[in-house]
Design a binder for these strands. Sequence first.
DNA 1: AAGTCGGGGGG
DNA 2: CCCCCAGACTT
Length: 380
Amino acid sequence: MNTTTTQKQFFSEQLLAWYRRHRRDLPWRRSRNPYYIWISEVMLQQTRVDTVIPYFHRFIERFPTMQSLAEAPEEEVLKLWEGLGYYSRARNLQGAVREVQERYGGTVPDTKEEISTLKGVGPYTSGAILSIAYNKPEPAVDGNVMRVLSRYFLIEEDIMKPATRSLMEKLAKELIPGGAAGDFNQGLMELGAMVCTPRSPHCLTCPVMEHCSARDARMEEALPVKKKAKPPRPEYRIAAIVEGSGVHAGKVLIRQRPQEGLLARMWELPHVEVPFAYAAAADGKDGSIAIPPSISLLTDRLAEETIGVRPERRFMRTEHTFSHIHWDMEVVICSLEPSVLPAASGMLMPSHYEWVDSSVMGQYAFPNVFLKLLNRYFQK
DNA sequence: AAGTCGGGGGG
DNA sequence: CCCCCAGACTT
């Protein structure tokens, strides 16, 4: 990288001017309320603009102030986050807002040191809030910014390495024009989203093509350099749709996940992981799960929780990919088997189980994989 | 430095 | 089908 002063100045000036002409009208750009900027930046972590927009509207309608969010029950926050993924973002946001209420008198801190102590506010988000809400000259380096900078300045370091990120932050900070940190940082991201796209960048409409080093070197498609992620590990699971009877007729059994870990505190269909050996025992050529004997793993587990069930028929097979795990899940419809219940009348289910139908599902937050299954079952 | 933590859209 | 996305946190 051999960077000249004119190349940097050109970039800063042209990008800022371009952004002010071409900025999209996004909901969180209609205010400089630090709380709204904060919500948007957290929602936008690893998530597309188009996905976030409806969530952002619902969230600020229900929680218009930090006080309203601080006082809300966590389940309600989680429910508004339902389907967005990375649910710790929602819990961290509420916890951090409570922290701002208590420690900072309800004002979002305006220094890097203070704001960075808040849960879920890392290097990117702190810079984004400080620059966009307070116009402080702090860099906000996300995937878009690293792509733009790696191309314009022909940086061939692996952008997954922390050292490369530090380099990018240093460079991005130097580029901020005086008094225009918010617009410049947003312009950098806007360019990455709209023009300097991951594949087939639209160089002919780019405001800084003239001095783009990657363009000169015909390297724009090859940058940024990024080591490939490991493929998700496969997991095989078998789930039950337990149909209620009597007072629970028309309802199915759901349960809440543990406090920590994957999909923490979300609701789900009862299910168990099936050892690979069981899954591989399937006769099918596609590696499908052998329902017997896998089903007994499920019924045994439920019996341990005082819930006796009897498998009735196969519902469907579904696959779902998380960042690091791939679920291949067989879903079986079961009926209640009162004879297996220790005291069918009196014995209470564990408190993390509930009966639901489609009318009360709205009170529970489900990850998409189970939301889709339940909606299909209830034919929504 | 590597693993954990969701979900969807686009080529 | 693969890649990527307005990342942060833990180990």
